[in-house]
Design a protein around this nucleic acid. Structure first.
Length: 301
DNA sequence: AATAGAATCAACCGCCCGTGG
DNA sequence: ACCACGGGCGGTTGATTCTAT
């Protein structure tokens, strides 16, 4: 491949794993558990690089790996998550139980990527050198002007928030102290979102998908968001956001986030913004998360 | 049946980050 | 503050399989 090896590989096996190697690795991890990959090959008696062992285990030998083709639901979810996260395959894989980042990455490159690139409004893949070093949510150029920007959830703290309903003025730039982004922050942003949406005289709601929303400065957040936050956000706060969206402050006393009845809207016709993810998993129904992403991607953008 | 080209996917790569000394 | 190390990540490669001619 033209690259210098990352570590000494003299005498190490390369290429496809044999059944024997798989068995040795599996047995070793069963007994000793994961981790210490660098020492693992020596201890297990494998002539493999530690990284190779880790990859083989994570992508192929792990017992919870889901085999078989990507389902239609999974594909839709991948597309939506990719819109939201970009090429953060591990994060995307984290939302698809049993699927690995490598599998999703391959699937994207061989299937979805082609589908999308064959459509007129496709966005070219972001090359590594083009990727921003810090997280930012770029202002949406125009809702009619191609897909929304990708949110790169890499860095770790909020440094600046800028929300404006008019074209930007200097004094509308709100410099904030760095804050950790957590559930309350999400809720706060959601609150800002909803309040803004409810103001009759305000410009179109944040990410409302309004076709007239040509002002890219309407909602700009320049903050850094780490994977933990996103994971927290995607994992555990659906109920809060859901309650909040229903106009009911999430009851801090209700530790029963699994209580799905709390999330039902009083108005049966008003679907909650978010569904409880437990419901999603229990029902193996990915559409709940889909609906969440439908709403939240617009909101993010 | 043979061959070339396309498609697929496991494996490898370098880079980066978090952690502990 | 600095450094070394382990581990994780996304990008890329190449062997294998599939399909068209």
């Amino acid at each position: 491949m033209g690259r210098s090896p990352c570590c000494a590989k003299e005498g190490l096996n390369r290429g496809a794993w044999t059944a024997t190697e798989d068995k040795i690795l599996t047995e070793y991890i069963k007994v000793h558990g994961e981790g210490k990959w660098r020492n693992l090959p020596k201890k297990a008696g494998l002539k493999r690089c530690g990284k190779s062992c880790r990859l083989r285990w994570l992508n192929y030998l792990r017992p919870d790996i889901k085999r078989g083709n990507i389902t239609h639901d999974e594909e839709e979810l991948i597309i939506r998550l990719h819109k939201l996260l970009g090429n953060r395959w591990s994060l995307i894989a984290g939302r698809l139980p049993g699927r690995t980042d490598n599998e999703i990455k391959n699937y994207w490159n061989t299937n979805i990527g082609k589908k999308i690139s064959s459509t007129p409004n496709h966005r070219p893949r972001i090359q590594s050198e083009e990727r921003p070093n810090s997280t930012s949510i770029s202002p949406r150029p125009s809702l009619n002007n191609g897909p929304p920007p990708v949110l790169h959830a890499k860095p770790s703290r909020c440094t600046k928030v800028f929300i404006a309903t008019e074209p930007p003025k200097v004094d509308q730039v709100i410099e904030t102290r760095p804050v950790s982004l957590g559930p309350s922050t999400v809720q706060g942003l959601a609150m800002a979102h909803d309040q803004k949406a409810e103001e009759p005289d305000s410009s179109p709601a944040i990410g409302s998908g309004n076709e007239n929303d040509s002002n890219p400065s309407d909602f700009m957040i320049d903050f850094e968001m780490d994977a933990n936050f996103l994971s927290e956000f995607l994992n555990s706060d659906f109920s809060q956001l859901c309650d909040f969206h229903d106009g009911v402050e999430a009851d801090s006393n209700t530790n029963n986030t699994s209580s799905t009845s709390q999330h039902s809207s009083p108005n049966a016709t008003e679907a909650p913004l978010l569904m409880n993810e437990e419901e999603t998993l229990q029902n193996s129904n990915l559409f709940s998360l889909d609906s969440f992403l439908d709403c939240e991607m617009d909101w993010f953008c």
